[in-house]
Protein backbone atom coordinates (compact mmCIF):
# COMPACT_ATOMS: atom_id res chain seq x y z
CA UNK A 1 0.00 0.00 0.00
CA UNK A 2 1.28 3.47 -0.80
CA UNK A 3 2.47 5.59 2.09
CA UNK A 4 2.20 8.95 0.38
CA UNK A 5 -0.20 11.28 2.07
CA UNK A 6 -3.53 11.20 0.38
CA UNK A 7 -6.11 13.92 0.07
CA UNK A 8 -9.28 12.84 1.85
CA UNK A 9 -7.27 11.13 4.55
CA UNK A 10 -9.49 9.88 7.37
CA UNK A 11 -12.44 9.58 5.03
CA UNK A 12 -13.19 6.20 3.58
CA UNK A 13 -15.57 7.91 1.19
CA UNK A 14 -15.68 11.56 0.22
CA UNK A 15 -17.63 13.12 -2.61
CA UNK A 16 -17.29 16.70 -3.71
CA UNK A 17 -20.23 18.59 -5.24
CA UNK A 18 -21.33 15.43 -6.99
CA UNK A 19 -23.94 15.97 -9.72
CA UNK A 20 -25.63 13.45 -11.93
CA UNK A 21 -28.38 13.94 -14.46
CA UNK A 22 -30.33 11.43 -16.46
CA UNK A 23 -31.74 13.43 -19.37
CA UNK A 24 -33.56 16.36 -17.84
CA UNK A 25 -33.82 14.76 -14.45
CA UNK A 26 -31.28 15.75 -11.81
CA UNK A 27 -30.55 12.69 -9.70
CA UNK A 28 -27.68 14.06 -7.62
CA UNK A 29 -27.34 17.73 -6.85
CA UNK A 30 -24.08 18.80 -5.23
CA UNK A 31 -23.71 15.85 -2.88
CA UNK A 32 -20.80 16.08 -0.43
CA UNK A 33 -20.71 12.74 1.32
CA UNK A 34 -18.18 12.22 4.14
CA UNK A 35 -17.90 8.71 5.51
CA UNK A 36 -15.25 8.43 8.25
CA UNK A 37 -13.02 5.37 8.20
CA UNK A 38 -14.49 2.63 10.36
CA UNK A 39 -17.99 4.10 10.40
CA UNK A 40 -21.23 2.34 9.73
CA UNK A 41 -22.90 5.06 7.70
CA UNK A 42 -26.55 4.82 6.81
CA UNK A 43 -27.59 6.69 3.69
CA UNK A 44 -31.31 7.20 4.05
CA UNK A 45 -33.79 8.52 1.56
CA UNK A 46 -36.98 7.78 -0.28
CA UNK A 47 -36.97 5.64 -3.39
CA UNK A 48 -35.46 7.66 -6.21
CA UNK A 49 -33.64 10.07 -3.88
CA UNK A 50 -30.28 9.16 -5.46
CA UNK A 51 -28.94 6.57 -3.03
CA UNK A 52 -28.19 3.88 -5.60
CA UNK A 53 -26.72 6.37 -8.05
CA UNK A 54 -24.34 7.57 -5.34
CA UNK A 55 -23.11 4.04 -4.71
CA UNK A 56 -22.80 3.40 -8.44
CA UNK A 57 -20.60 6.47 -8.81
CA UNK A 58 -18.39 5.18 -5.98
CA UNK A 59 -18.05 1.88 -7.86
CA UNK A 60 -17.30 3.85 -11.06
CA UNK A 61 -20.32 2.20 -12.66
CA UNK A 62 -21.83 5.63 -13.28
CA UNK A 63 -19.97 8.79 -14.25
CA UNK A 64 -20.83 12.04 -12.51
CA UNK A 65 -21.72 15.04 -14.70
CA UNK A 66 -19.90 17.31 -12.27
CA UNK A 67 -17.92 16.94 -9.09
CA UNK A 68 -15.89 13.92 -8.08
CA UNK A 69 -15.78 11.03 -5.67
CA UNK A 70 -12.94 9.52 -3.67
CA UNK A 71 -12.62 6.16 -1.97
CA UNK A 72 -9.70 6.02 0.47
CA UNK A 73 -8.42 9.14 -1.26
CA UNK A 74 -8.47 7.56 -4.73
CA UNK A 75 -10.50 9.26 -7.44
CA UNK A 76 -13.13 6.72 -8.45
CA UNK A 77 -13.20 7.90 -12.06
CA UNK A 78 -9.43 7.64 -12.52
CA UNK A 79 -8.65 4.54 -10.47
CA UNK A 80 -11.78 2.46 -10.87
CA UNK A 81 -10.21 -1.00 -10.72
CA UNK A 82 -8.10 -0.18 -7.66
CA UNK A 83 -11.13 1.29 -5.97
CA UNK A 84 -13.33 -1.69 -6.78
CA UNK A 85 -10.70 -4.10 -5.44
CA UNK A 86 -11.21 -2.53 -2.00
CA UNK A 87 -14.98 -2.70 -2.06
CA UNK A 88 -17.52 -5.38 -1.35
CA UNK A 89 -20.63 -4.31 -3.20
CA UNK A 90 -24.20 -5.49 -2.90
CA UNK A 91 -25.95 -3.84 -5.85
CA UNK A 92 -29.50 -2.59 -6.00
CA UNK A 93 -30.59 -5.26 -8.45
CA UNK A 94 -30.58 -8.94 -7.72
CA UNK A 95 -29.76 -10.10 -11.23
CA UNK A 96 -26.19 -11.25 -11.54
CA UNK A 97 -25.81 -12.04 -15.20
CA UNK A 98 -24.22 -15.43 -14.45
CA UNK A 99 -27.52 -17.28 -14.45
CA UNK A 100 -26.09 -20.53 -15.84
CA UNK A 101 -23.38 -20.88 -13.21
CA UNK A 102 -23.88 -22.75 -9.99
CA UNK A 103 -23.44 -20.66 -6.84
CA UNK A 104 -20.37 -22.68 -5.89
CA UNK A 105 -18.79 -22.07 -9.27
CA UNK A 106 -19.54 -18.35 -9.11
CA UNK A 107 -17.89 -18.15 -5.70
CA UNK A 108 -14.75 -19.80 -7.08
CA UNK A 109 -14.87 -17.54 -10.13
CA UNK A 110 -15.15 -14.33 -8.11
CA UNK A 111 -12.50 -15.55 -5.66
CA UNK A 112 -9.86 -15.31 -8.40
CA UNK A 113 -10.31 -11.54 -8.61
CA UNK A 114 -9.59 -10.95 -4.94
CA UNK A 115 -6.19 -11.87 -3.48
CA UNK A 116 -7.66 -11.51 0.00
CA UNK A 117 -10.51 -13.95 -0.69
CA UNK A 118 -10.92 -16.29 2.26
CA UNK A 119 -12.52 -19.54 1.15
CA UNK A 120 -13.23 -20.88 4.63
CA UNK A 121 -14.93 -17.60 5.52
CA UNK A 122 -16.89 -17.76 2.26
CA UNK A 123 -18.02 -21.29 3.18
CA UNK A 124 -18.96 -20.13 6.67
CA UNK A 125 -21.03 -17.23 5.26
CA UNK A 126 -22.68 -19.45 2.66
CA UNK A 127 -23.69 -21.91 5.39
CA UNK A 128 -24.91 -19.21 7.75
CA UNK A 129 -26.95 -17.57 5.00
CA UNK A 130 -28.16 -20.88 3.67
CA UNK A 131 -26.76 -20.43 0.15
CA UNK A 132 -27.13 -23.71 -1.77
CA UNK A 133 -23.89 -24.10 -3.69
CA UNK A 134 -25.29 -26.65 -6.17
CA UNK A 135 -28.11 -24.37 -7.33
CA UNK A 136 -27.67 -22.30 -10.47
CA UNK A 137 -27.61 -18.55 -9.94
CA UNK A 138 -30.50 -18.06 -12.36
CA UNK A 139 -32.78 -20.32 -10.34
CA UNK A 140 -32.42 -18.31 -7.13
CA UNK A 141 -35.30 -16.41 -5.59
CA UNK A 142 -34.91 -12.70 -4.91
CA UNK A 143 -33.87 -13.44 -1.34
CA UNK A 144 -31.56 -16.25 -2.44
CA UNK A 145 -29.77 -13.94 -4.86
CA UNK A 146 -29.41 -11.34 -2.10
CA UNK A 147 -27.84 -13.89 0.24
CA UNK A 148 -25.37 -14.94 -2.45
CA UNK A 149 -24.46 -11.29 -3.09
CA UNK A 150 -23.79 -10.78 0.61
CA UNK A 151 -21.39 -13.74 0.64
CA UNK A 152 -19.60 -12.38 -2.44
CA UNK A 153 -19.30 -8.92 -0.89
CA UNK A 154 -18.01 -10.02 2.51
CA UNK A 155 -15.81 -13.04 1.78
CA UNK A 156 -12.73 -11.02 0.83
CA UNK A 157 -13.07 -8.82 3.91
CA UNK A 158 -12.75 -5.58 1.94
CA UNK A 159 -11.98 -2.36 3.80
CA UNK A 160 -15.23 -0.89 2.44
CA UNK A 161 -18.66 -2.46 2.12
CA UNK A 162 -21.20 -0.70 -0.10
CA UNK A 163 -24.56 -2.23 0.60
CA UNK A 164 -27.52 -1.09 -1.46
CA UNK A 165 -30.69 -2.12 0.38
CA UNK A 166 -28.91 -5.27 1.63
CA UNK A 167 -31.94 -6.72 3.38
CA UNK A 168 -34.23 -6.28 0.38
CA UNK A 169 -36.01 -9.56 -0.30
CA UNK A 170 -34.79 -11.28 2.88
CA UNK A 171 -37.26 -12.88 5.24
CA UNK A 172 -37.18 -11.72 8.90
CA UNK A 173 -35.12 -14.69 10.13
CA UNK A 174 -32.42 -14.28 7.49
CA UNK A 175 -32.49 -10.51 7.94
CA UNK A 176 -31.66 -10.72 11.61
CA UNK A 177 -29.02 -13.40 10.92
CA UNK A 178 -27.48 -11.13 8.28
CA UNK A 179 -27.25 -8.23 10.71
CA UNK A 180 -25.67 -10.55 13.29
CA UNK A 181 -23.11 -11.72 10.72
CA UNK A 182 -22.37 -8.13 9.83
CA UNK A 183 -21.79 -7.29 13.50
CA UNK A 184 -19.44 -10.30 13.79
CA UNK A 185 -17.67 -9.20 10.60
CA UNK A 186 -17.10 -5.73 12.02
CA UNK A 187 -15.74 -7.17 15.26
CA UNK A 188 -13.21 -9.29 13.32
CA UNK A 189 -12.17 -6.89 10.56
CA UNK A 190 -11.76 -3.13 10.53
CA UNK A 191 -14.34 -2.19 7.91
CA UNK A 192 -16.19 0.91 6.79
CA UNK A 193 -19.78 0.27 5.83
CA UNK A 194 -21.93 2.52 3.68
CA UNK A 195 -25.43 1.14 3.60
CA UNK A 196 -28.29 2.67 1.71
CA UNK A 197 -31.79 1.93 2.83
CA UNK A 198 -35.27 3.30 3.16
CA UNK A 199 -35.85 0.93 6.09
CA UNK A 200 -33.65 2.64 8.64
CA UNK A 201 -34.88 0.73 11.67
CA UNK A 202 -33.45 -2.46 10.21
CA UNK A 203 -29.87 -1.22 10.43
CA UNK A 204 -30.41 1.23 13.24
CA UNK A 205 -28.56 -0.82 15.86
CA UNK A 206 -25.41 -0.98 13.72
CA UNK A 207 -25.32 2.60 12.49
CA UNK A 208 -23.13 5.32 13.93
CA UNK A 209 -23.48 7.92 11.15
CA UNK A 210 -26.38 8.96 9.05
CA UNK A 211 -26.88 10.94 5.86
CA UNK A 212 -30.24 11.88 4.45
CA UNK A 213 -30.78 12.33 0.71
CA UNK A 214 -33.85 14.18 -0.47
CA UNK A 215 -34.44 14.61 -4.17
CA UNK A 216 -30.75 14.35 -4.95
CA UNK A 217 -29.58 16.69 -2.20
CA UNK A 218 -27.85 15.69 0.99
CA UNK A 219 -30.03 17.50 3.53
CA UNK A 220 -28.39 16.08 6.64
CA UNK A 221 -25.14 14.38 7.53
CA UNK A 222 -24.12 13.80 11.11
CA UNK A 223 -22.93 11.30 13.65
CA UNK A 224 -25.44 9.51 15.77
CA UNK A 225 -24.30 11.37 18.88
CA UNK A 226 -24.76 14.72 17.15
CA UNK A 227 -28.16 13.60 15.98
CA UNK A 228 -29.14 12.67 19.55
CA UNK A 229 -27.93 16.00 20.85
CA UNK A 230 -29.45 18.25 18.22
CA UNK A 231 -32.74 16.65 17.24
CA UNK A 232 -35.28 16.39 20.03
CA UNK A 233 -38.96 16.18 20.49
CA UNK A 234 -40.62 18.74 22.73
CA UNK A 235 -44.08 18.32 24.09
CA UNK A 236 -45.76 21.25 25.75
CA UNK A 237 -48.97 22.77 26.93
CA UNK A 238 -49.79 26.16 25.50
CA UNK A 239 -52.46 28.78 26.18
CA UNK A 240 -55.26 29.08 23.68
CA UNK A 241 -54.44 31.03 20.56
CA UNK A 242 -50.73 30.65 21.28
CA UNK A 243 -48.21 31.27 18.53
CA UNK A 244 -44.76 29.70 18.36
CA UNK A 245 -41.87 32.11 18.92
CA UNK A 246 -39.82 32.96 15.81
CA UNK A 247 -36.36 31.55 15.29
CA UNK A 248 -37.03 27.96 16.21
CA UNK A 249 -35.74 25.40 13.75
CA UNK A 250 -38.81 23.26 13.72
CA UNK A 251 -38.93 20.25 11.47
CA UNK A 252 -42.31 19.04 12.38
CA UNK A 253 -45.24 20.30 14.44
CA UNK A 254 -48.24 18.44 15.70
CA UNK A 255 -50.92 20.35 17.51
CA UNK A 256 -54.21 19.50 19.01
CA UNK A 257 -55.96 22.06 21.18
CA UNK A 258 -53.66 23.07 24.02
CA UNK A 259 -51.05 20.41 23.36
CA UNK A 260 -48.23 20.94 20.91
CA UNK A 261 -45.38 18.69 19.90
CA UNK A 262 -42.35 19.89 18.00
CA UNK A 263 -39.46 18.08 16.48
CA UNK A 264 -36.79 20.74 16.58
CA UNK A 265 -33.11 21.23 15.93
CA UNK A 266 -30.84 22.87 18.44
CA UNK A 267 -29.54 22.87 21.98
CA UNK A 268 -32.16 21.45 24.31
CA UNK A 269 -31.78 24.13 26.97
CA UNK A 270 -32.03 26.97 24.47
CA UNK A 271 -35.09 25.53 22.76
CA UNK A 272 -36.82 24.81 26.07
CA UNK A 273 -36.01 28.30 27.34
CA UNK A 274 -37.35 29.92 24.21
CA UNK A 275 -40.56 27.93 24.43
CA UNK A 276 -41.00 28.68 28.14
CA UNK A 277 -40.36 32.39 27.65
CA UNK A 278 -43.12 32.39 25.06
CA UNK A 279 -45.51 30.91 27.60
CA UNK A 280 -45.44 27.24 26.73
CA UNK A 281 -45.12 24.75 29.56
CA UNK A 282 -42.68 22.11 28.35
CA UNK A 283 -43.65 18.73 29.80
CA UNK A 284 -41.39 16.36 28.00
CA UNK A 285 -38.19 16.44 25.96
CA UNK A 286 -37.02 13.24 24.36
CA UNK A 287 -34.30 12.22 21.93
CA UNK A 288 -35.50 10.44 18.82
CA UNK A 289 -34.73 7.03 17.46
CA UNK A 290 -32.53 7.21 14.38
CA UNK A 291 -35.41 6.36 12.10
CA UNK A 292 -37.68 9.09 13.49
CA UNK A 293 -34.92 11.69 13.32
CA UNK A 294 -34.07 10.79 9.74
CA UNK A 295 -37.75 10.88 8.87
CA UNK A 296 -37.96 14.39 10.25
CA UNK A 297 -35.20 15.43 7.85
CA UNK A 298 -36.88 13.58 5.01
CA UNK A 299 -40.19 15.33 5.43
CA UNK A 300 -39.21 18.56 7.17
CA UNK A 301 -38.26 21.90 5.75
CA UNK A 302 -35.10 22.38 7.77
CA UNK A 303 -31.84 21.24 6.26
CA UNK A 304 -28.58 20.78 8.03
Amino acid sequence: MSTQSIPGEGWAVATHALCKRYGRETVLDGVGLRVPEGAVYVLAGANGAGKSTTLRVLMNLARPDAGRAEVFGMDTGLRGPEVRARIGYVPEHHDHGYGWMTCGRLLRHVARYYPAWNQSYADHLARALDVRLDRTVGSLSKGGARRLQLVLAMAHRPPLLLLDEPTDGLDPVVRSRTLGLLAEHLADTPTTVLVSTHLIYEVESLADHVGVLREGRLVAQLSRDELRRTVRRYRAEVPEGWKAPPGLEVMRTRRSGREVQWTALGDEREVTERLSMAGAQVREVSPLALEEAALAFLTGEVTQ
Binding site: G38, V40, G180, A183, E184, L186, A187, S205, L206
Partner: peptide, 15 residues
Protein backbone atom coordinates in the same frame (compact mmCIF):
# COMPACT_ATOMS: atom_id res chain seq x y z
CA UNK B 1 -16.90 -11.18 24.38
CA UNK B 2 -17.45 -8.02 22.34
CA UNK B 3 -17.83 -10.14 19.23
CA UNK B 4 -20.33 -12.51 20.84
CA UNK B 5 -22.51 -9.81 22.29
CA UNK B 6 -22.40 -7.68 19.12
CA UNK B 7 -23.41 -10.65 16.97
CA UNK B 8 -26.02 -11.79 19.47
CA UNK B 9 -27.73 -8.39 19.60
CA UNK B 10 -26.87 -7.40 16.01
CA UNK B 11 -25.32 -4.17 17.21
CA UNK B 12 -22.14 -2.34 16.35
CA UNK B 13 -19.15 -3.93 18.17
CA UNK B 14 -17.96 -0.41 18.97
CA UNK B 15 -21.07 0.09 21.06
Amino acid sequence: SVRELAADLAINPRT
